[in-house]
């Protein structure tokens, strides 16, 4: 009976919107890092579905209307990238080199570690793009035949890690340049890292946003080849 009601698309849409709305309110009340609104919204919805014994598939009848907008949002990232790119008039050669190096490091190191630790191949395929912004990471995982839902969860976790510990790790490693700190945060921890970069300063934020977009593009272009090469060698 009730199950039929939950299968209405409006259920999935409504619960997603209200969960996020409440999560944002919570964050405003207590500004604490682990109260990341997306994380809280996801946990809240999962809790609700488990309590009322609603399948993910049932929820996702409506959820798909929401996630549909990931497609146009990725295109919008191109516009965002252009705007940030225009803000920076300096020579970008070394910046691009650093992001390319960081992007390749991200893919190869996570793949290598997972292989060493004997994780199943489907997890490796799902985590290869863990450093880049969620919508792009989801697309990459789909192409690699991984599990996009695992990617989404881990990518958010990576962002929170970078946001919380990124600047500390960089300063402990003797990094002082503002551009270096911003670029590293955007390359390794995408949008959630970029939010932290903006807290560190305007220059850090702009470079982080640029690096996030550029690493998204680079990782999307190279990961299918890197991964196939990797699996062929090992």
């Amino acid at each position: 009976m009730m199950q039929q009601f939950f299968e209405l698309p409006v259920f999935g849409v409504f619960i997603t919107l209200i969960a996020y709305f409440l999560a944002v309110k919570l964050r405003k009340r207590w500004n604490y890092l682990l109260l990341n609104p997306v994380l809280i919204a996801i946990a809240g919805i999962i809790g609700f579905l488990l309590i009322f014994r609603i399948d993910f598939e049932t929820y996702n009848v409506g959820g798909e209307y929401i996630s549909f907008f990931l497609g146009p949002s990725v295109v919008a990232l191109g516009v965002f990238f252009y705007e940030k790119y225009e803000e920076v008039k300096q020579n970008l050669k070394i910046f691009i080199l650093a992001v390319v190096a960081g992007g390749i490091t991200g893919v190869l190191s996570v793949t290598g570690f997972l292989l060493l630790l004997k994780a199943p191949e489907v997890i490796t395929r799902s985590l290869a793009a863990k450093s880049v912004t969620t919508p792009i990471a989801i697309e990459i995982t789909r192409l690699l035949n991984g599990i996009p839902e695992i990617t989404a969860g881990i990518v958010i976790a990576v962002g929170i890690f970078g946001n919380a510990f990124g600047p500390f790790i960089l300063k402990k490693s003797g990094i002082k340049s503002k551009i270096a700190i911003g670029t590293a945060l955007g390359t390794a921890a995408h949008g959630i890292g970029t939010a932290r970069a903006f807290e560190e300063g305007k220059i850090q934020g702009v470079y982080s946003g640029l690096a996030m977009c550029l690493n998204g593009i680079i990782t999307a272009l190279i990961t299918p080849y890197l991964l196939e090469l990797f699996f062929r060698i090992f």
């Binding site: 996801i42 996702n60 919008a76 965002f80 919508p135 996009p148 839902e149 990617t151 969860g153």
Partner: peptide, 17 residues
């Protein structure tokens, strides 16, 4: 779209379950 980007991937996160 950028402003509300995070909402759009919530269903994928829920799929973790």
């Amino acid at each position: 779209l950028i402003k509300y980007l995070v909402i759009f991937f919530i269903p994928y996160g829920v799929g973790l379950m």
